Simulated assay, not measured.
Amino acid sequence: MSSIIVNGSPIQDFTPEQTDYYFTLDSNDREVPSVTAVTEDPNATAAIWLPAAVPGIVYITAKAKIVLGETIQEYKIKKAEP
């Protein structure tokens, strides 16, 4: 995974090793954010599960093929508390 984009903005200081992130919404914003996962490996895939409502947790599962199978990394994105 090379980047996670929430509502059109990349998560700052993203590193593939860190798996929990927070995003900020305006206090009046109750819409589930749009989330895009960008993979750096053309053989990698990313699945995104969005919550039904805010607050909620966005789950991303990234999979990449390696020589002896596949590697899986899971990420969680949560709404930051004001």
Rank of each mutant, 00 (worst) to 15 (best):
T71F: 08
P42Y: 03
I48T: 09
K65E: 14
Q12D: 14
A53W: 09
S34G: 06
K79D: 04
Q18I: 12
V6M: 04
V35Q: 01
V6S: 01
I57G: 00
V54I: 14
V54N: 06
A47V: 13
V32S: 00
L50D: 02
G56K: 08
Y22M: 11
G56D: 06
A64F: 01
I48Y: 03
D20I: 15
A46L: 08
N7F: 07
K79T: 11
K78I: 02
R30N: 10
L68S: 13
A62L: 02
Q73K: 14
T24I: 08
V38M: 07
N28E: 12
K79W: 01
A53R: 15
L50H: 07
S2G: 13
V6W: 02
V67T: 13
A52D: 15
P42V: 08
A62K: 04
Q73L: 05
F23T: 02
P16L: 02
P16Q: 09
I11A: 05
I66Q: 06
A44K: 02
A64H: 05
G56R: 07
S2V: 01
D41W: 02
A80N: 14
A44V: 05
I11L: 15
V67L: 12
Y22K: 14
P51W: 06
I5H: 05
V58A: 03
Q18W: 00
I57K: 09
S27F: 12
Y59A: 05
A46W: 08
P82H: 05
G69E: 03
A52F: 08
I72N: 09
I57V: 15
D26G: 09
E81S: 11
K78C: 05
R30F: 10
S2K: 15
A53Y: 11
I72V: 15
S27A: 13
P42R: 04
P82E: 10
D20Y: 10
K65L: 15
I60Q: 07
N7E: 09
V67G: 04
I60P: 05
I11H: 01
V35I: 11
V6F: 03
G69L: 09
I60F: 03
N28I: 11
K63H: 06
E31H: 03
L50C: 06
S3I: 00
P33D: 03
E81T: 09
T15G: 05
T71R: 13
D20F: 12
